[in-house]
Amino acid sequence: MRVVLAEDQYLLRDGLTRLLQAHGMEICAAVESGDELLAALRAERPDVAVVDIRLPPTFTDEGLQAALAARRERPDLPVLILSQHVEQLYARELLADGRGAVGYLLKDRVFAARQFVDSVRRVAEGGTAMDPEVIAKLLASNARDEPLGRLTPREREVLAGMAEGRSNAAIARQLFLSEGAVSKYTTSIFAKLDLPPSDDDNRRVRAVLAYLNGRVE
C-alpha cells in the first residue's frame, strides 16, 4: 500500500513514517508543505494520503485545502486528515461529496498504533474513519432531533461506532457484544431513522454520516 504523508513537524513525520512502514506500507513521499503535497499527490498517485491540516507556508488549513483540491481532480483519492483539534465544519466539508474514502482523526489517535493503522487501511479501501470526538459533536448538535431522541442509549453507542466507520465486528469487540446483537441494533437504528437498510459496511456508514450531516445544514 503506497502512502503520501504530509506533516510539518519532523518528529511526528518521522514517527508516522516508521509506524506505517512497520505495518508493511510504503511511504512514497513524506512532505512538509501544502504545495509539495499537491505535487506529490499528482506525481505519485498513492493509495492513501495522510495529511496534517495545518501546514506551511500559511499555517492555516493548507493541508485540508490541498487534499480537497486533489480530490476534486481525482474524486476517489482516499484522504486521512490529522489535526490537533477536530471541527464539525471540516468534517462536513470532507463528507460533503458523499463518496467516502475520507478520514478525520485527532493526532493523538496515533498513540493507539494498531487502531490508527486500521483506520488508514479502512480509508484506503474506501471506508471512513471519523474521530469519536467529531461523532460526539455531530450527535450533540443533532440531539434535539426527534428520531435520534427515540434511540436507546445502547443504540446510540452502536450508531456512534458506525459513524466512526467501524464494521459490525469492530463495534461488537468494542462494546463486548456479539456480532449478531450489533446487527440487530443496526437494523432497528435504520428503521428508527428511516434509512434504507444495507449490508455493505461502507454504504451503511455513509448513510449514517449523510444523515448526521444533512440534518443541520
Partner: peptide, 25 residues
C-alpha cells in the same frame, strides 16, 4: 480554544463563527 480558537487562525472569523454555530446545542 479559549486563547485563540484554531478555526479562527485557520479560516478567519466567518468560518469560526460557523463552527461555533455547528457546535452549539
Amino acid at each position: 480554544r479559549g486563547i485563540h480558537p484554531p478555526v479562527l487562525a485557520e479560516r478567519g472569523l466567518g468560518d469560526a463563527v460557523r463552527a461555533l454555530a455547528l457546535d452549539s446545542a
